[in-house]
Simulated assay, not measured.
Amino acid sequence: MTVEQVNSYQELPTQAPTVWSRTVELTIINFIGSIPRPLGTLLRRLAYRSIFARMGRRVYIQAGVELLGARSMEVGDDIKILRDVRLEIRHPNSLLRIGDRVCLDRGVDIRATGSDCLIEISHDSYLGPYVCMAGPGHIKIGKNCQIASHTGIYANNHREYGLSREGIEIQDDCWIGSGVRILDGVTIGKGSVIGAGAVVTKNIPPYSIAVGVPAKVIKLSKGGVA
C-alpha cells in the first residue's frame, strides 16, 4: 500500500450514522430519486447535499440512481452520475470518494460491503456502462483514467488462507478495455493500456500494453520499464 493510500485510509469516518440520518437519507432518495429531469435533476442537486458526506458544485444525478450509505460518500465538482448507477457503502467506517469531473455512466455498480474500505476515483476519470467495483479491499482509480464498459474490479479473492483484501490501484492515465477483469492485489502502472477481455492477475509496469488471459505485457512504450 502506498503512502497516499495509507493517508487516505486514516481519514476514513469512524462515527456511525444515527437512525435519524438513515431515515432522512431513505426518505429523500425515495421521494426525489425517481423524478425525471429537468425538475428531478434540480431537486436532487439541492436535496442530496443533506445526505452526502460532501457534495461539490454542478453535480448532475439522473433519475433511478440508487444510493445506500450516502453519509459515507464524498462527491466532487462537475460530476455526472447517470441512470441505474448503484453506490453502496454498508459500513460507516468505509468511504467512497469521487474526485472532480468524474462520470459514472449508466449501470455502474460500486459496492463496499466490508468495513475499513476506501474506494477512490480521482479527477477526470470515466467509468463506462455497467462497470462493477467491489471491496472490501481498497480500490484507487488514478487521474484521467478511462475504464470501458462491463469491466470488473474486485478487491477481494479467495485464497488458501481465506478471503484476501490486498487492494487494487490503477494509476494515472490508464485505459482499460471492455470486459476486463482486475483481481485483488494488482497495481496497473501509469499510462498503461489493458486490452478488451483481459484478466489482470499480476502487476502491470507503467506505460505497458497488456492483453490476454491472464494478461501479459506485449509492449512497453517509451518510459516503460519491464
Rank of each mutant, 00 (worst) to 15 (best):
L42C: 04
I121F: 06
N93P: 00
L104H: 00
V186A: 10
D184I: 09
M1Q: 06
T14N: 05
R71C: 02
R86E: 01
R71N: 01
R106T: 05
R159C: 02
I35W: 08
I139D: 06
H138A: 10
I79A: 03
G185K: 07
V225T: 14
S72Q: 13
I139C: 08
L127K: 07
H123W: 10
A70P: 01
K190M: 15
L220R: 14
P92C: 04
R83Q: 09
R58E: 12
E120I: 08
G162F: 15
V85T: 02
V102N: 13
E66P: 01
Y154T: 04
I51V: 12
N93L: 03
I176F: 14
V211K: 12
D172T: 15
W175Q: 09
R54K: 15
H123P: 03
M73E: 06
K190A: 10
D105M: 04
G128T: 01
G191N: 11
G177S: 13
D105N: 12
A112Y: 05
G197A: 10
I218C: 12
L26H: 12
L26N: 08
I79H: 04
D109Y: 15
F31V: 02
G212A: 11
I209M: 14
L127H: 04
S21T: 11
L26G: 07
G195A: 13
L68E: 06
I121N: 10
Q5P: 00
A134Y: 07
Q62W: 02
K216V: 10
A134I: 03
G114W: 11
N203P: 07
T27S: 02
L26F: 14
S34P: 00
R181F: 08
Y9D: 02
Y161R: 14
R159H: 06
G137S: 07
D77E: 04
K190V: 13
G223E: 02
A16Q: 14
E160L: 15
I147A: 07
G189Y: 15
L39H: 02
V19C: 00
K222P: 00
D100M: 06
N157A: 06
G99K: 11
